[in-house]
Every structure is written in structure tokens, then in C-alpha cells.
Design a protein around this nucleic acid. Structure first.
Lengths: 234, 234
DNA sequence: CGCGTAGTTGATGAAAATCAAATGTGGTGG
DNA sequence: CCACCACATTTGATTTTCATCAACTACGCG
């Protein structure tokens, strides 16, 4: 029952019921490597391309005039960006690790939506997942406490990483504390303190700055779900 | 540049490039009237139907175990609910006014997605709008102050109502303060105080509990966008 | 081996939540 | 039509949580 981190989560393009279509789709895209900290596009840019992240991680975000930033999601292997957007991008996208991404010219992509049977339907399913994740995130941003937010975040990351690696309970945080804070609607200090609190309660261990071990997954899930939070049954 | 209130905003079903298809779609649905305060479905229910709101307003929400509630959006005339969902509904839907709604059995609806040309594509566009609105809401929930939230909310309502009525600057709030608070991630007291602050600054007038007049739309937009907020240039 | 950036920790402050009345308001029945 | 009731809203006092400000520490890299 773990929600994905909001993003166009998918393995769409390399997926296909029939190999011909898959190959056709593949041929339409161009793969490119980006260094860490590069901009794929900015909010307001003409939405010229659809991107698929092949490897690495990307953040999507918007900023308010005075610099406050909200990260909408982190994208990683297999995720799509920009499918939804017609006209102009409504957020910016930057790499937070080295990234290999394939991109598709919008015109070609749109033609595929019309021509390839089932393609639009499949994109619709992806958008639905995305939407569900976005709503999960609204619940988090609007109603969860700092600890609950961080707990939820760790579990979501863990769930995503469980796909790849073996099901060990070590979670890697490829993004900075600033990114985490801007994703959870907190400050870096509050994120740090929430992690410490979880550590003190024995729920997690901090292996290093960017690695966390989940010691008590059940308890972490309780906290994330907002079951009771404070653990002081004195 | 006014974001819609997150919802499956659409005039989809009654819309059609060709009248035959429209009629066919129409025939598939059943219209029903709901009193105020009724439940269309609950989080976790089998997602048996797709709903189109014909008239009235509906709230979509999720609740945490201890009762904290987050409203994901308010639906009104022409909006769709449940398109995205396969399996089980991930939120609850309740009427906040008397509502006339048409509903479609999922199986039939899904068949249409496959059979009616362009239908999936059109739903995809709706989902995209929805997604954009959800991201706008994440920015609001994560990074805006109480006054900014309320200002944004009033403008979104005004924009939606501008479609129907003439472009007068009176906004009707069909939902309670509790609903507004649960939508903006605030408490009712804070919503009330934010409205008062806007009134004191001369940006709005409170005509009655449920009616607001926008006196200074430009300033309200500045506040909503987070340009500076406090107005105390001594 | 520092140097710079990222992260942690602590002290203080501010915004919003909570608690507690008081005030409106709409609807119902007398 | 009016009085009353239940409930929604406003307003005020206080508390809590998180943000801000300020060192301090750790880590990675040239």
C-alpha cells in the first residue's frame, strides 16, 4: 500500500505489447546524458519535448517570486516528464544526479498518441497513477506533521528502491536535505530534527548522510499513516 | 492565468465532435439527484462508477486515522470523478449542495475508452489539467502562508464562477469554513482571520458568510502569487 | 590538507493551532 | 410571524509546532 513518489511513473516507452511498436517508439527518441545539476527545462519554456528518464534522478519544482520552492516530485528510471503538458511547461526540471534521458519531439509524440492503438489509454493510466500520488502528497502537505512527512517520504523511497535492489531495508537518499525539505514543505533544519527523532525512537538508523536503515518498518508505517505519532506512554 | 480548483474539470461527456457519439455516450449514463451531505462513494469502495456532476458541488477528500481531513478538490458542473481510478476509490466523495449527477458503469465506460476514437486522448487531456491543478495545490499547501492560501482560493473560485455569471466580482462560497480549511490545510479559525485581514486591507468585502466581493483584484492576485504579502509601508 | 558546501544542533521567534467564549444565522415549530 | 435551537462563524487568549537565526561539525574534493 505504498504510494509512489509523485511523478509520471512508468516504464512506458520501452514497454510494448508488440515488438514492432516498441521498436517504432524507440526509434523516435534521442538519448542524451546530463551532468548533475543541469536543467532539462524551465517553467514557462515552450513544452517542446517529452522526456523519459533512463537512469538517474530529476526534480520537478515551482518557485514563488520570493524564492520559496516546492518540489512536485522526483523522477527516476523509467519515469516520463512532460506528457501532460501542452503549450508551456508548468514547472522546471533539473537533474540531481548524472542522468541519462531520452527525449521525444512533442509533435512526433502526439502523433503516436493518435496512431498507436492503446497508447493514449496507457498514458491515461500513467496519468491516473500520477494523480493518485499527487493526492497522496496533498494529504501529506496539508495535514501531516513533520515527523509523519519524513516517515512517509522514507517509506516511499524504500518502496521504490525495493523494485531494483534486494529487499534490504537500507534506503538511499540521492537528494540533498534542501530538496527533501522543499518536497515535504519543511525547512532543512526540521527535516534533520525529524530524522533525529526517528533515530532516537529506534525506528531508523542513520548510516551516513545519504543512507538510512529502517529498523522498525511497522512503526515507521504507523507514524507515516498518522496513527498516533508521539511515543511517550510513560 | 487562473488555476482551476483541482478536480476532473471537464465538459467531456456532453461534448462531442460528432453528435452520434455524444448521443451514444449520453445513453450509457443514468442521472440521479442527491440531497446535500450525501456520500457518492467512500475511500476504499469498489470503483464501480464514473460520475459526472451535472449541477451542484461535491467534495473529494481523504482522512487520516485520527480524523484529520484533506479535501483534494471541489467538483461542480461538468466535472468528472472516478475516471482515473481502477480498482478502488482512493478518496471519498460527498455532496455539499443538492447535486444532480450522471453515473456510468465502469465496464461500459472503459469499453468506450477503447472504442470511441479520441476518447482516451480527451480523457488524457482532462487528466493533464487535473494534474496541473494538483501541482498548483501542492505549491499552495507546501509553501504559501494562510493569507496567500485564502487569496488563491478566492481567485480560483472567482475564475470558475466567471464562466457562468457575468464577470461581476462577487464570489459565492458554497462550502463551509471547515471545508475551506480542510482544502487549504488550515483550521477554520485561521481561514476566518485571513479573510478578516484581507477585508481590513481593503482587498475584499464580506457581503455575508458565504459571499465575498473582490474589491482589488490586482492586489489579491499579488497576494495569491506570494509577491510580498504584508502591507505595512509605514 | 584545508576549504567549501551540506548537515546538525541549539536558541529564539513567529505563524498557525488549540482552547474557549461570544456572536450570527438559518431553519423549525409554535 | 416570531422565538428558539442547533450549528456555523468570529473573536480572543494561549500553546505548539515549525521557521529563523546562529554556531558548530562533518564530509567530499581539489
Amino acid at each position: 500500500v505504498q504510494p509512489a513518489v509523485p511523478a509520471f511513473s512508468s516504464r512506458l516507452l520501452s514497454y510494448g505489447h508488440d515488438p514492432d511498436t516498441s521498436r517504432r517508439i524507440e526509434r523516435l527518441g534521442t538519448t542524451r546524458i546530463y551532468a548533475r545539476g543541469r536543467t532539462l527545462f524551465n517553467e514557462g519554456d515552450d513544452a517542446a519535448n517529452v522526456y523519459e528518464i533512463v537512469r538517474g534522478m530529476v526534480r520537478l519544482y515551482r518557485v514563488l517570486p520570493d524564492g520559496r520552492r516546492q518540489i512536485m516530485g522526483f523522477l527516476s528510471d523509467g519515469d516520463l516528464v512532460g506528457v501532460a503538458v501542452a503549450g508551456r511547461y508548468v514547472y522546471s526540471a533539473e537533474t540531481i544526479t548524472a542522468v541519462s534521458a531520452r527525449f521525444y519531439a512533442r509533435a512526433k509524440f502526439d502523433r503516436m498518441v493518435d496512431e498507436v492503438p492503446g497508447f493514449a489509454r496507457r498514458l491515461l493510466m500513467l496519468a491516473s497513477d500520477e494523480l493518485r500520488a499527487a493526492q497522496e502528497q496533498m494529504l501529506l502537505l496539508g495535514r501531516k506533521s513533520a515527523s509523519e512527512k519524513v516517515a512517509t517520504f522514507l517509506l516511499a523511497l524504500a518502496a521504490r528502491q525495493a523494485d531494483d535492489r534486494s529487499a534490504c531495508d537500507e534506503v538511499v537518499l540521492p537528494m540533498t536535505r534542501t530538496d527533501i525539505a522543499d518536497y515535504l514543505g519543511l525547512t532543512i533544519e526540521t527535516v534533520s530534527r525529524a530524522l533525529r527523532r526517528l533515530k532516537c525512537e529506534g525506528v531508523i538508523a542513520l548510516l551516513s548522510t545519504s543512507r538510512v536503515e529502517i529498523l522498525d518498518a511497522g512503526r515507521l508505517e504507523e507514524i507515516a499513516a498518522g496513527e498516533q505519532e508521539a511515543s511517550d506512554p510513560a
